[in-house]
Computed example of a mutant assay.
Amino acid sequence: MLNRRHLLGLAAGGLAAPSLALAQGAWPNRSIRLVAQFPPGGLVDTVARLLAPMMSQTLGQTVVVENRAGAGGVIGTDFVAKQPADGYTLLMSHASVHVFAAATMPTLPFHPTNDFTHMLHLVEAPNVILVRGNSPFQTLEQLIAAARRQPVRYGSSGIGSAPHLLGAMLSGEARVPNFEHVPYRGSAPAMQDLLSNNIESMIDPITTNVKQMHEGTLRALAVSTPERLAAFPNVPTFAELGFPKLTSAQWLGLSGPKNMPPAIVERLKAVVPPMLRRPDLLARLTDLQTLPREPSPMGEDFVKLINEQIGDWTAVARQFDIVVS
């Protein structure tokens, strides 16, 4: 159910959009680039390419997804931070950069909140701990028990990533120092090694693993949602297994360079959220188990969420001495 803010936003989008566009020189009057700071095929790219055609249709100009990958998303994010704040360069902002990189990297070429106009929290994806479908580990308890006897490895998309920090928390909470982290340059090579039996487990956002989980190629031992997922009712949450601190999700947002014109910001805040509730897009997001939060933080509320998460995960990074140099 839409709350009062959303109803007002929808009304504003329908009634005020023409005057807002006029105030900004008929924005948009040319194509818009939507920067995805990770390679094609991943979570950010997938959601960006689902959203871009709908934005094009609504705004009346082509929205082009542009992949600018590198340095764990920092390169593409920094690129957007340094662009003109005219509404023609937007960013699929991601918690992995604005929260986890901020928590683990001593220096960034940008400030995670002050150098951006953070407009909308779009969707969030829970994390899962995965093993191969033919793994001897049927439960998280069995994996932890094995790690008490001998080293058991978990792969992640890189040092300082959300999966890395979740694995460190699991190791600390379960008191299993033999749960060893193996970092990779992205999720794809980690998954290759998992399926090749070079590592025993992997922690990753659920989005790009749903198909293999349904097929049985992968088995999820736990999910980081507060409650079990309806699509995977047999997968317990970390919380119900005794690890409530591992309840988290990785969000995607819509952001731009700092000091974007308020009229453009308000128009995007009005027209984009209804796209996420269109039956065709919502069905696809449901298939990916990557959904909007209700209510979804906007503007200052979104910035407040980012700052709170930076504080929380900085404390975790310091606790486990996780630093990305």
Rank of each mutant, 00 (worst) to 15 (best):
E180T: 08
A283S: 04
L130W: 04
Y154H: 07
S187E: 14
P109V: 01
R49H: 14
I264G: 12
L22H: 07
L15G: 00
R228T: 09
G299D: 13
P189G: 05
N259Q: 15
N209E: 12
N127I: 03
V123A: 00
S224E: 13
G41D: 10
P28R: 02
P126E: 04
D193G: 04
L170K: 02
H6C: 14
L20I: 04
R219D: 03
D312T: 09
Q250H: 10
L50T: 04
S157W: 02
G311K: 15
V316I: 14
L50M: 13
D280M: 11
R5K: 14
A26S: 03
P28T: 00
V223M: 15
S19N: 02
G158R: 10
F179H: 00
V35G: 09
N209H: 11
P233K: 06
R219W: 06
R175N: 12
W313I: 05
R49N: 12
R148N: 11
N198I: 08
S19D: 00
A168T: 10
A21M: 05
E294R: 08
F110G: 08
S248C: 00
T46Y: 05
D204T: 12
I129A: 07
V74P: 13
R33G: 06
L221M: 10
V131A: 05
A11M: 15
V44Y: 02
G73A: 13
F179N: 06
N307A: 13
P262K: 04
I203P: 08
N134A: 08
T208N: 10
T290D: 06
L285G: 11
V182F: 14
P236W: 07
I322N: 03
L241N: 11
R277K: 14
G133T: 01
E308A: 15
P106G: 04
L241M: 14
L194N: 01
E66H: 08
T77V: 09
P244L: 10
E227H: 13
R132P: 08
S187Q: 10
L34A: 01
M92W: 04
D280R: 13
F110D: 00
K245D: 15
A220K: 07
S171V: 09
N29L: 06
L254W: 05
R132C: 09
L43A: 04
H118I: 12
A101Y: 03
A145M: 00
L291W: 03
A103D: 11
M298E: 12
A317P: 02
M191G: 10
R4W: 10
M119K: 05
E240F: 15
V176M: 00
D115G: 11
G158H: 08
R267A: 08
Q192C: 04
F232N: 12
P39K: 08
V80G: 12
M260E: 09
P189S: 05
I306K: 07
I264C: 12
P262A: 02
I322W: 07
M54V: 08
